[in-house]
Amino acid sequence: MIAERHVNLALVLGLIVVPSWALAADEPFTITLATRAVILALAAVGLNIALGIGGLVSLGHAAFFGIGGYVMGILAYHAQTFTPLDLGAFSIAGTKAMPVIWLAAIVLSAFVAAVIGALSLRTSGVYFIMITLAFGQMFYYFAVSWRSYGGADGMSIYVRNSFPGLDTLVPIQFFALCLVLLGLVLYLNARLVRSRFGLALDAARQVPLRVRTVGLDPLRLKLAAFVLSGAVTGLAGALYADLNRFVSPAMFSWQFSGEIMVLVILGGTGRLFGPVLGAVVFVALEHFLGGLTDFWQIYLGIILLLIVLFARGGIIGLLCGKRGLHD
C-alpha cells in the first residue's frame, strides 16, 4: 500500500509537470485538457464536501455548476454588448473581470444552494437524491426556455474574461489561474475537515444522535456543508464557461450531475484529493479511448463498473487501502 500523501504529491507534481512539458513541446491542447481536468476537479471537490464529508448524495449539483456558468455568461454578455443588466429596481453594468464574476458566481450559487438545501434536507436517502435531481431539472428547463440568453442553444462569449496582470487567452496562464484556485479550495477544504465544524459534520453523518446530544443541530451542519459545496461547484461552473467561452443548458443537465458524481467516486469518496484524481483519470480516459474507437463509451462503462465492483473506495482506495481522510 502506498501512503495517501504520496499519491497526492504525485498528483500535484503531475499537474505541474505535464502542462510544463506541454508548454515546452508546444502542445497547447494538452494544456487545455489539463485545464478541463482541473476545473472538473474543482466542481467535484465541491460535490465531495456534500457527498464525502456530509454524506449528502446530491444528483442536482449541475444546478450550481450551471448557475456559475450563466453568471459568467450573462455578465460577460452585457459587457460585450455594452448593455446594462436590468434587475427590475436597478440595473448594473456587465463585466469581464474574472474576480467579480467569480464572486458573483459563488454568492449566487451559495444562495441557491441554501434554498435548495433547506427544502431538500427535509428528506433523506433516495428521496434526497431525487429531490435534488428535480431541482436540477427545473433549472435545466428554465435555461432551455430563457430566450434572452440563448435558450437551448446557449450563448458564446467571444473573448475570454480578464484577470488583472494576466493574459487569460494564453492557455498556460489560464491553466495556472485555475490550478491556483483549485489549490486554494483544497487547502480550505483540508482546514475545514480538521476544524470543529468539520468534525461535527463528520459526526453528524455517522451518528446524528450523538451530535444532537451535545447541542448541535445536524440539519444545520448539513445545510452549511451543502451551501459550501454548492458555492465551490458554482465557481467551477464560471471557470468552465470561461474555458469554453460558451454556456448552454447542458451545464444544468442531470447527466452532468451524474458525471461529477462519477469523478468523486472514481477517485475516492471523502478523500481530499479523490475528486482531483477522478477528474484527471476521467479526462484522460475520455481523450485516449475516444481516439481508439467510435464505441469508446462501452469501455468507459466497463472501467467504471470494474472500479465500483472491485475497488470500493475508488482509485485512491485501491492504491492506499481503506481509510477516508476524516477517519
Binding site: 502542445e27 497547447p28 491542447f29 494538452t30 487545455t32 485538457l33 478541463r36 446557449g154 492557455p171 468552465y240 469554453n244 467561452r245 460558451f246 448552454s248 447542458a250 475516444g290 467510435d294
Partner: peptide
C-alpha cells in the same frame, strides 16, 4: 476526425485542439 458527442463544450475543445495542436 473527432467525435463531439453532440456536446458544445466538447466541440469547442476539439476545435481548440485541431487549431492549436
Amino acid at each position: 476526425i473527432e467525435d463531439d458527442q453532440r456536446k458544445p463544450g466538447i466541440a469547442v475543445q476539439l476545435a481548440d485542439k485541431m487549431i492549436q495542436s
